[in-house]
Design a binder for these strands. Structure first.
Lengths: 214, 214, 214, 214
DNA sequence: TATGAATGAGGATTCATTCAT
DNA sequence: GATGAATGAATCCTCATTCAT
């Protein structure tokens, strides 16, 4: 173990440490997790961690940054959809899938908590958050223009509402261990659809919005 | 320096410590806050705190318990409303008011994070959460029976949806320092109303759900 | 051990820690000495030290500051002498006495070394050094004016020379374990007297400066 | 990557490491300097250092040994002088020149400090010191015998006095950043000449020792 | 009860040294 | 020989908690 690690190897090791840290943070939270635990989870020695990350805080920063990259990637993939309501719906589905992993939800909560106390982490998280909301806003604006979602909301409100639903979803997973994303998927999808009121909701058939009005 | 404090004095001091702790936790989080900081904020000596709370953890437990009491009180007040949709709406309004205090939202986030790592705190938080959802479920069930909210949702789904919206709201406050509860109140109310589809939504007048259908 | 320590007690404890630290630093140097060693030497627990000193560095800073106070006190006592050459001589004698304690000399060396790497300590040491040289300069100037020391030197030179002799003396003690201050006292006194050329040197009788001139 | 280096290459690299280490030690001191810093300064990898020196301590040992060699060489060159007072004076001049490099003085201080805590380094330093004092003693003895320096001092005292002056000089450089060896050269030369009282001091003409006696 | 000094386990981080390549 | 990743003991400092007064 001496020749300079090939770049892939270095990244792979770094990523392995990040995965170990994510597991630990999801389990115990950022502050209560010791660097020794992360090292042990990653199968490396206590000192070696610091070849890959300047500090414990740098680990959480890297995690947040990766989450940002991932979010960017996901959003980028949606812009090409013809039906932008479907695009928003697709994003929401994606998030529902991610939220089904309890570790992922716990980590999200932990990151949010850390963001509210450490200004540097806070800046990163807010950056990601702004990124997602901007992405959603762009989609929403186009959807509104094409009348693919109902009236009564401007693009910013749509983005905010979806963001809040997503946060709420993660919170439910993190707080309630009996909560099952799959079991409650319909409730959240319904909440989204009723909020956005697309011309033709997938759920509409079962729950017509205006049936009683007749 | 030996006279037993009168009960009120004892409770008052205890409550003062709780308030101090809440302020600190909202500011820095549970783990990074030291007991010394809490004592300093409460204007007592470091040792004295432990006459009122067995441990640091007992403080957060007491905070969570008080939040539970408060939630119970709020919910109890709603059962008498004639229009149960209005009752649900009123609860939501109450929460919106609480969420406008950033400290309160930060504390909620912190409590949630701690709950996800400490099983004892977790149990208390889940207890509170169950309490609130049960309260909401009862209200929702009655509202559904009286057809005060629209069809397509069962009582549990209503409760879950409202809980998620509330969590989402708190998350927005905690994450985004530019977020203004008052400024975005409409978006959240709209989300609630579209979700519940009451016969006559307060917002409906301005943004009729089915206007285009005619 | 709980009532606030009386101020004397606090100072006494603080001083005890300083003495312990001085002993350790003299023995092993500043960096190689662990705070645990200091605590053990002082008979306190590892954490308690930090009630008295913010950091390890603060300990050395306090030591240097005390040395400054002491120097000031010594110099102040000399200004009243009628014969200012005697005053300078007296100061030198004082230093000779201090230098006979090997620990003292080792500590001085250690402080000087630390000063050359830590700018904060450096500033303190230079402040003390300036203090001493100023004190010596004032004495020297008066002595020169009264012709109590010989011509050929200005006051600054006198001060510098004495300071260098003192440093050299300490260095000798610290470096050479066979060196005995008492045994070599005469050499140093002679060096001083020949340097200052007072009208009547105490050593002159045995070692007339100009005997060969006759 | 396996060919044995030619001897010169090996020594050259070794010497390069020593120079790098000296620069680092002068800057930061022995303990605070990391082997990684030395390697970086020397332009080699962290592991490679240990092919040339068994340990970090071995580096300082080598530095001290080289200083000893150098001192020996300098002293050897002086024995041939006809006027042994001039020889002593020349040695002092040499030292004045070396002391003008602040790095050199810092290193000397650092070495002295390390010697006082590490017995092995201490032994080496004391060996060098003895060497120099012996060299000086021999010169002084011859000078006394030839009456090239004044009476009142035996050879050992002369050696000790010169050694102390040199130490004092180095200490002045290391402690006082405003101190200029060139600016204060005269003071130190005067101290030496008055101490040794040669028949014809270079400085004597300007500052006759016995002018007042007439 | 109130005080705050004392305790000491624990945690992040550093760094000399090793060793596989 | 050269490399630099890996090791893990060691260090400074923090902090919840105790307890003598």
């Amino acid at each position: 173990m001496a020749r300079p690690l090939k770049v892939e190897d270095h990244s792979a090791r770094r990523q392995a440490i990040l995965e170990a840290a994510k597991a630990c943070f999801a389990r115990k939270g950022f502050h209560p997790t010791t660097t020794a635990e992360i090292c042990s989870e990653a199968g490396i020695s206590t000192g070696n961690l610091f070849h890959y990350f300047r500090s414990k805080k740098a680990i959480i920063a890297a995690i947040v940054e990766q989450q940002g990259e991932e979010a960017k990637r996901h959003l980028a993939g949606l812009a090409d959809e013809a039906d932008l309501y479907e695009a928003l719906h697709g994003f929401f589905d994606l998030v529902l899938a991610m939220a089904s992993e309890r570790d992922f939800a716990n980590l999200a909560l932990e990151v949010a908590a850390e963001a509210s106390r450490d200004p540097d982490i806070g800046a990163l998280v807010r950056h990601n958050d702004a990124l997602v909301r901007e992405g959603l806003t762009v989609l929403a604006a186009a959807a509104i223009e094409r009348r693919q979602i109902g009236p009564g909301l401007d693009a910013t409100q749509v983005a905010l509402g979806i963001a809040a639903m997503i946060d709420g979803l993660f919170a439910r997973v993190a707080i309630d261990p009996n909560f099952s994303v799959q079991g409650q998927r319909n409730t959240f999808v319904l909440m989204l659809e009723r909020f956005l009121q697309p011309k033709a909701s997938r759920v509409l058939f079962e729950t017509p919005l205006c049936d009683e009005a007749h």
